[in-house]
Simulated scan of single mutants.
Amino acid sequence: MTTRLFHVSDLHFGREDIAAVARFAEIVRDERPDAVICTGDLTMRARAHEFAAATDWLKTLGVPVTIEPGNHDLPYFNPIQRLLDPYKRYRRVAAAIERPMDLPDVVIVPLKTTARIQPRRLSWGRVSRSGLIRALALLAEKPAGAVALVTCHHPLVRTDFEGHGDTLGGAAALAVLAEAGADAVLSGHVHDAFDVAWEAKGRTVRLIGAGTLSRRTRTTPASFNELRVENGRLEVTVRAVG
């Protein structure tokens, strides 16, 4: 049995690449992956109309979708809401697209890396103690032989990409997640695709980043990752959209 997942990130509705998001939706409808994983930054400035556009687009995909918030999904122009209820609009999106997932050979483990207060360093992400505890609890329930994918917005550690600093608590979290059985960490944020093997606690964890479907591309053209899981093995292909 093969499970196919599409990993997409940094859609940035408000500055989305209209042709790229339309083409990705067409590919999903044609190929029918088992699920789509979105690792954050649905919007550019967390405006209501940007979330509405992202929600409408996600609904057209017609397959189960799981999403993680990105730093651009927290209120930009409303500091009070950012402090008191920063994920309000994000939760509405999640509720609108929620569909059951049946992935017997894959465990998806959400790990929030956004912060309410984001000076430059925290815009690079942070891992909270409570978020890590929740992720570890899900990993503890991982069935034998299943592949565990941790999903977050910010890369937990730096590899060979540019324009991103250290995620606060990321390296320590990665070591603990590896020890608990994580097989890969999926992220976005840097707008470039990567797939790096990372040694931690005597295990190899793959760090997998998706590109962007926005107009804010860097070295990788508009793209997404196709993940195939079969017999406990994970294969990743970067697919350009254009």
Rank of each mutant, 00 (worst) to 15 (best):
T3F: 07
R4G: 03
L5A: 07
V8N: 00
G14I: 11
I18Y: 00
A19Y: 09
A19N: 11
A22W: 00
A22I: 03
R23I: 00
E26Q: 14
V36M: 08
C38F: 06
T39Y: 01
T43Y: 05
M44G: 00
A46S: 15
A48F: 07
F51W: 06
W57K: 03
W57M: 04
G62D: 07
I67S: 02
P69V: 13
G70K: 02
N71A: 05
H72D: 11
D73Y: 02
L74G: 02
F77D: 15
F77K: 06
N78D: 15
L84I: 14
D85H: 12
D85C: 11
Y87I: 09
R91A: 12
V93W: 10
A95C: 04
A95G: 08
R99K: 14
P100W: 13
P104D: 08
I108N: 02
V109A: 11
P110R: 14
L111V: 06
K112D: 11
T113G: 02
T113M: 07
L122H: 09
L122F: 14
G125C: 10
V127M: 10
R129L: 09
R129W: 00
G131H: 05
L132K: 05
A135I: 07
A137H: 11
L138E: 14
V147P: 02
L149A: 12
L149C: 14
C152D: 04
C152E: 03
V157C: 03
R158I: 12
T159W: 08
F161H: 15
E162P: 02
H164S: 10
A172R: 15
L177R: 02
A178Q: 04
E179D: 15
D183M: 00
D183Q: 01
S187W: 06
H191E: 11
F194G: 01
F194L: 09
V196A: 08
A197T: 11
W198H: 13
G202H: 10
G202L: 10
G202Q: 09
A210I: 06
S214G: 05
R216P: 00
T220G: 06
P221C: 09
N225Y: 04
R228C: 05
R228K: 08
G232M: 10
G232R: 04
E235I: 08
V236T: 14
V238Q: 15
R239N: 11
R239C: 04
A240C: 02
G242M: 04
G242P: 12
